[in-house]
Structure formats: C-alpha cells, structure tokens
Design a binder for these strands. Sequence first.
DNA 1: ATACGTGCAAAATGTTTGCTCGTTT
DNA 2: AAACGAGCAAACATTTTGCACGTAT
Lengths: 127, 127
Amino acid sequence: MADPKRTRNTHKRQRILRAIQAAGCHLTAGEIRRRVGRDGLAIGLATVYRALAAFARAGLVESVSLGGRATRYGLAAEHHDHVVCLECGRWQPLRRCPAPRAPRDAAPGFRVTGHRLEFFGYCGECR
Amino acid sequence: MADPKRTRNTHKRQRILRAIQAAGCHLTAGEIRRRVGRDGLAIGLATVYRALAAFARAGLVESVSLGGRATRYGLAAEHHDHVVCLECGRWQPLRRCPAPRAPRDAAPGFRVTGHRLEFFGYCGECR
DNA sequence: ATACGTGCAAAATGTTTGCTCGTTT
DNA sequence: AAACGAGCAAACATTTTGCACGTAT
C-alpha cells in the first residue's frame, strides 16, 4: 500500500507548502503557482502538480474537488469540511467536522484514513 | 436562487434518467452515453451534459467528483455516500449515510440542500 | 553517483459553448 | 409560435507526460 514516502526538501516545494499554509484554506494548483510567483519565485505549473501529488502520497496534503471546478489542495493536518453555494460558487470552511471517523458499514478490512465532506445549498444572498 | 425548473420530457432525457436509475449507482457522462447508446439510441455527449445540468438544476440528480477522476451523476432521491480506495481507485456506495442533515456552524441564512461525503483509505486487498 | 525535481511544450481529459435545426409545449 | 432540446465541431480549462537538464541526498 501507500508507503508514506518522504519528498525532497527543495526550495520550491517548501514555498508551495508555505503558500498553502499561509492561505489557511484549500487552493487550486493555479492559485498556488500565482502566490508563489507573487512572492518572487517563478515556478512551472507541472511542478506544482507533481509536488502536490508527492505531498498527497506522503499524506501531507489532501485534495478536494468541488463539483466541476478545479481541484483544491490543503494541508491534511488542518482538515476541515466545506459549505458550498450552488449559485455563486462561494465556499466556506467549517470549524467543526460533523462526520464520524469511519462509516459503520464499510467493507470489512477497509482502513479509513480520511474523508471529505461538502454541504451544498444556497447562501443567504443567493436565495 | 435556483428555480427548480422542470425539464422537458424528451425521449433522450428519459433514457438518460433510466440509465442512471438502472445502474443504481453514480455514472460519468461518458458511461451514460455509452449505456444509452448500447441500448440502441445514439446521443451526443454535449446533450448528456446539458441534460445532467438541467436535472441537477431541477434537483433530480446530484453530482459527485471523486478526486480528479470524472464527475459522476446519480439520482438525488437515491443519495448515498462512498468509500474509496486510494490505491486501486475502487469505490463502493454506503448503505447508511453518516452525515447530519446540516452542519452546526454553517453561515447564517445558508439553506443546505444536500451533501457529499467520501471516506477514503485502503481496501482489504490493497493494504 | 543516483534518484529525484524542474521547465517547457505537447498531449490527454473532461466539460462547455456557438450555431443551426428539430421537437415539445 | 415560442421556448427549449439536440447534434456537431470547436473552444476551454485542467491535469498529465516526455524529454533534457539541474539538484538534493
């Protein structure tokens, strides 16, 4: 199964992680690239994707894809769930995670390592 | 906000819904197209997407995107959550939905109409 | 020294849109 | 008749890959 391989400690990868951390919420690959670039470090998009894949493999980062839109990446250590407005697309993190650690009726032998939960509906302004 | 518009009752749209219903689980747009086609009715992919968007607007269908892979669509009336293996990618529906109707700390005024929950980890065979 | 990271451009996916014409209401 | 659905091809956005070279371990 997934060996939690460690990733190499390069300057760019540090900056990618730092950008996600500084954001405090989930970012898309493009946003990450832009933020790192804005701080004076040019970086290829492919590099961002490869770094994110490595981080995810290592269990550092979790990915969330909110229906259709680009996938977002956040620190696994700062897991949180989301509420998404179907109309305007805005989404907000939840403080409390309302899901159980593991479902009651998972397949036998399945080891749950995480989850991803999004509530959707319509925000006050869009109703 | 989203007026639950009714969609027109065309032959193709009926077949799309029937395909999803017959499958009993979430399908991708491509799978739907293939199944409808296999039953002798050629249909364009754009048509499938537009129909699904209309169904979603009408609240008939819900969409789920399991990290990276293509978005899957299922009947909203037969909502269920999933368990996904990070190694082999196989996923299974859960009988019981372990999420609450709505989170405690959603933004005020937010009306929750649904959710989407996926547990992930490693299945018995991949561990 | 070796395995891994990076950039670039190209390719592969998945999804949406413009236009024209057909069908439902 | 009017509004919406369908088909096709082109456009789009996102993500992945091949290759040549650089860097961390």
